[in-house]
Design a protein around this nucleic acid. Structure first.
Lengths: 122, 122
DNA sequence: GGTAGTGTACTAGTTACTTAGTACACTACA
DNA sequence: TGTAGTGTACTAAGTAACTAGTACACTACC
């Protein structure tokens, strides 16, 4: 996987976790692929994916069973929505609106873009 | 000034430069405040602002007169627009749309937000 | 018991970013 | 000429992120 240079890799991987949760590919109680498997999938060091797991456990999104693996918490979806929403409202949205303003783009331009770029293929 | 932890400080300062240029607070040929003054204003080490200046000079947005200072290039505004637009279209916009989709937000929600949050106060 | 698959805990080393401090060359100007 | 304000070039140090490798304890299962 390719990563942006502007953000730590383990956080970008966390975002992929959030996607899986929000898209309900992972649901409460599901076992999450192991730290080692994730490292192979994302082509990073296991230590890096471990940081992602620690980060998400700290947020209460996943929990651990010793010797078995990590699982999605009962309220994992709710916590993920809360986390993403907070980040979106406090950081992403204001920056986005500011950039649109600076570039002189309108909501109609955005509408056109969205129509031309079907929202999902993953 | 407070900085986000997810992006290098010198790049966040560069964004402030871009704002000044896009808002036409700085126009072609204008002398830009010195590396040392900028360091004081942003409360960082002069080495850090120097990285911003080097970055922007590398992009062709500003140029240097030895012993005098940095100045906004003739096509500084155009280059800034091009840079921001590219970044916006390739990174910010796709991520933004994806997050909106994941959170189940619509363009109407966005419209409401924009109406409630007047676009500028700087 | 043995084995494979888990997470965990280390040491070590590299790179990027940031700060701190010093020194020096160039330009403008009194 | 002297001085203040520029950029520039260093050394040194600290932190975060990332990689590499090893070792160990726990759990499930044959």
């Amino acid at each position: 996987m390719e990563f942006r240079e502007t953000q730590a890799i383990y956080l970008q991987i966390a975002d992929r976790f959030f996607e899986n949760i929000l898209q309900k590919k992972w649901v409460s109680g599901d076992k999450i692929p192991s730290i080692r498997d994730m490292a192979v999938e994302f082509e990073v060091n296991p230590n890096t994916t471990m940081r992602t797991f620690n980060f998400l456990q700290d947020k209460g999104v996943i929990y651990n069973k010793r010797g078995i693996g990590y699982f999605l918490a009962d309220d994992g979806l709710e916590k993920t929505i809360a986390l993403k929403k907070e980040q979106f409202l406090q950081e992403e949205l204001p920056m986005f609106v500011k950039t649109m303003q600076l570039l002189g783009l309108t909501l109609d331009d955005l509408k056109t873009y969205v129509q031309r770029n079907p929202l999902s293929d993953n």
